[in-house]
């Protein structure tokens, strides 16, 4: 099967490998902690947006409740470590399982709703989860949970003050989500999901099972989001519902994909590379109350992209698809 699609996919893999090598090596020469922090967060949200894109982009099920899977991932890995001494290097896989399971549980009733109603339902479910964790004493309630500081080790995924290992960990997460998306693009799911997104009635007339297609996308998306949550918890060392489960996380997970290009392979990474540095810079330069200002900047950016490049920033790099083939 040596055709234009195979060639394009091979090309994508080569570009990704090149970027990966660059992203492993380049930060070794960066000593500035703030810069490293921005890179870590950008990679994290690139991975999260890639995970969101599997459900929201490919399958067209807009979720505004991914903070729930993210937060549950952080809690699972942290609590397993605190209460059961399970090292986070294992706990993060439990976090992924729980994230995927949670997405399935949300999907079971909510995928019976179509279009905007699914999006609205995910907002509500996300808020319910946030309130539950806020009032649940076993998981620390509003006080949150500290991850006990251990001797730096790969098993505990603790590296003390050294940021570089965290960066490489988050990079591995980002690369894994990209690779998952790439594999999906070569599978029948990729076609079924986009058919579901474009026209449900036509899709099922061709033998595409709508419900299980959505559930499969949700499970993969939720699992990677839970994994990202676990890694984030390790990195910040302390979690509470506000820092891992608040509603704005759901938006922050979806935005890079929307900004970069919904349903595209490179959109989430591109969107995160633009959005997260801008967010971090604006909140550090525009003062302690800059939270509102950086949200205004997002808003402006989204409006500009929506007006000028509704397909996302990634479409700037694409050869014009509508010229003579």
């Amino acid at each position: 099967m040596d055709n234009f699609i195979t060639r394009r996919r091979r090309h994508e893999l080569l570009v990704a490998a090149g970027l990966l090598v660059f992203a492993i090596v380049a930060p070794m020469f960066i000593k500035d902690v703030t810069t490293l922090n921005v890179i870590i967060l950008s990679l994290l949200f690139a991975g999260l947006a890639q995970a969101w894109n599997i459900l929201g982009g490919y399958c067209g099920q807009i979720s505004l409740g991914h903070a729930l899977y993210f937060g549950m991932g952080s809690y699972v890995s942290t609590l397993l470590y605190v209460h059961a001494a399970v090292p986070p290097s294992l706990g993060m896989f439990a976090a992924a399982a729980v994230g995927g399971l949670a997405a399935l549980l949300v999907g079971w009733p909510c995928f019976r709703l179509s279009g905007h109603y699914y999006a609205i339902a995910t907002v509500v479910v996300g808020e319910i989860g946030y309130l539950l964790f806020l009032n649940w004493d076993y998981v620390g309630g509003a006080t949150g949970v500290y991850i006990p500081i251990a001797r730096p080790s790969l098993l505990n995924l603790q590296f003390g003050k050294d940021k570089l290992p965290y960066l490489h960990l988050v990079l591995a997460f980002c690369a894994a989500t990209w690779l998952a998306a790439w594999v999906i693009e070569g599978s029948r799911w990729f076609y079924a999901w986009r058919a579901v997104k474009d026209d449900v009635v036509a899709a099922r007339s061709l033998g595409v099972n709508i419900f299980s297609s959505k559930m499969a996308a949700a499970a993969i998306s939720g699992a990677f989001t839970g994994l990202g949550g676990a890694i984030y918890g390790l990195y910040v060392g302390y979690i509470d519902p506000d820092s891992v489960m608040a509603g704005h996380f759901s938006i922050l997970i979806a935005l890079p994909a929307v900004l970069g290009g919904v349903g595209t392979l490179w959109g989430p990474i591109l969107g995160a590379a633009l959005l997260i540095p801008m967010k971090e810079l604006s909140s550090s330069y525009l003062g302690g109350s800059g939270r509102g200002v950086d949200l205004m900047l997002y808003g402006a950016m989204i409006v500009i992209v929506a007006l000028a490049q509704p397909q996302g920033v990634v479409s700037l790099f694409r050869r014009r698809a509508h010229g003579p083939a």
């Binding site: 699609i5 076609y191 058919a195 997104k197 474009d198 026209d199 899709a203 061709l206």
Partner: peptide, 26 residues
Amino acid sequence: RSFDSMTVLENVMVGAFSRTASAGAA
């Protein structure tokens, strides 16, 4: 009812995937 965000070939591949799991065969 066409899948408007997909190419003509991809539209037909959706149908073909009902008989094969392989992207190449589809």
